[in-house]
Write a protein that binds this DNA or RNA. Structure first.
Lengths: 247, 247
DNA sequence: CAAGCGGGTTGACGTGGATCAAACGCCCCA
DNA sequence: TGGGGCGTTTGATCCACGTCAACCCGCTTG
């Protein structure tokens, strides 16, 4: 295993054209006019491949760009001195990573690929320049940041006020919705993260996550086969969240 | 008790001048040049008084402006259908509230004054317009949003990976730092929120918060008298966070 | 001055999820 | 084809925090 090897990987010559990208409606350009999107083509610098388990960036790396996931998926996490890990999010195609770096010009979390992945590099200085000219871009970017804040509030709700099975149900419903938005099945999907990573995200131990999966299966809500999940009774899952009697 | 009474309260004629405000270095203008700050004076519309326990905004209110706390303090929270509350943050003078509303043009959380308070109204459309012209404002605003995201990550860490006493220690240290930044004592302060609100924020029940306070007092870390807190051994509190033997 | 009440403290007890431990299954590679 | 390792499942036990309940204190209100 080579150590880090940051530079060679970055040099992925291909320019990405937002105007041609089929992720538009999930990504930064969402809601912008075709004309405005054309202007983005000059902004998005290059792509970068990140192999499974490699870091896209680490805590302390100087902040220069945000990234849009093109293919694959990532987790972001923060570490305590004593090694405890908190996964702060999982990112799928079209989603933006790296916003944490703006505040101090250095990244405050780690971003790790969960599978071989591919991101668009959006140099932040250029983004700010262009969004001073393109109003719709400016507004879209603000929405992206705000959406992240709202998402974080949801996670706080989950971590602070829900019990284990509610957390996992919320997680599965969320994953299902995001897969759906990407044209995949809402009912059947492959989780790219381990039980431990799910647990870290949900504030639970991996054993608890595993048991909750098993319980859901016993109750006919889902079918689990390792990382492969099939949702059998989405209504039942949702009922868990609202404390309703399961339909 | 009158119901809502939104309009009359809003009409607080006084224009606020950022250029004259002593909260500059804690607020949106932080890091901007005097000249650039002068331009903010035209942006910040008016002030609004919010009495204790009154809402600055509620979930679902249409989003029009963000707010800078001038005096007093607030909590923001989100509610589950069954009434469970999750406090997502406490805001003090100079801090910005309302960023959650950008994503959907409607607020996604509630903001409630913890004491009689006073905010500057920053109409968001105007902020976007001006930040297309004033680069430093644009950048500052992005930093404010990013800082909120980073803060949220910290709360996730707290909720997902820390035990009760660690959470409370982190909370006290954080409060102490924020009071210090505002020119108040780092060691002695008055909490404006109840044990229940602290508990909600930290993902604990009020009894657990109360017990942890008592434990800290027994161990000579703090002195508690209802809402009045005196930190006796800040090193001891910090040690709780890093799992070090208490100095 | 008493009554009422919201907030806080404290105790006794219960429990959801953590911890510890064992075993299993899938997958990679020799 | 067989072994080794990581990820997962499952069981037994433990314990941190939640729950329930009593009581206290300082304020307000009549």
């Amino acid at each position: 295993m080579p150590q880090r090897a940051v530079v060679p990987i970055t040099a992925e010559g291909l320019k990405t054209a937002c105007s041609q990208c089929n992720l538009q409606e999930l990504c930064l350009p969402f809601g912008m006019s075709d004309g405005d999107i054309d202007q983005l083509d000059g902004l998005v610098g290059a792509r970068r491949k990140v192999k499974r388990h490699q870091h896209l960036y680490r805590v302390g790396d100087t902040f220069e760009a945000i990234f849009a996931v093109r293919t694959g998926s990532f987790k972001t996490d923060v570490l305590l001195e004593d090694g405890r890990e908190q996964v702060t999010g999982f990112q799928m195609s079209g989603e933006i990573i790296g916003l944490d770096g703006i505040s101090t010009d250095a990244h405050t979390c780690n971003a790790v690929a969960l599978e071989d992945s591919d991101v668009c590099i959006i140099p932040f200085a250029n983004l700010e320049t262009l969004s001073r000219e393109v109003e719709s871009l400016q507004h879209q970017f603000h929405k992206v940041m705000s959406r992240e804040i709202v998402r974080d509030h949801g996670v706080m709700m989950l971590l602070g006020s829900m019990r284990a099975e509610e957390r996992l149900a919320a997680f599965l419903i969320n994953m299902s919705q995001r897969f759906t938005a990407r044209g995949f099945s809402a009912a059947e999907f492959h989780l790219r993260m381990t039980r431990e990573e799910i647990g870290s995200y949900l504030g639970l131990k991996l054993e608890t996550v595993s048991r909750a999966f098993s319980r859901f299966q016993e109750n006919g809500l889902i079918k689990v086969q390792q990382k492969h999940i099939r949702i059998v009774n989405i209504g039942g899952l949702k009922a868990l969240l609202s404390h309703l009697p399961s339909v």
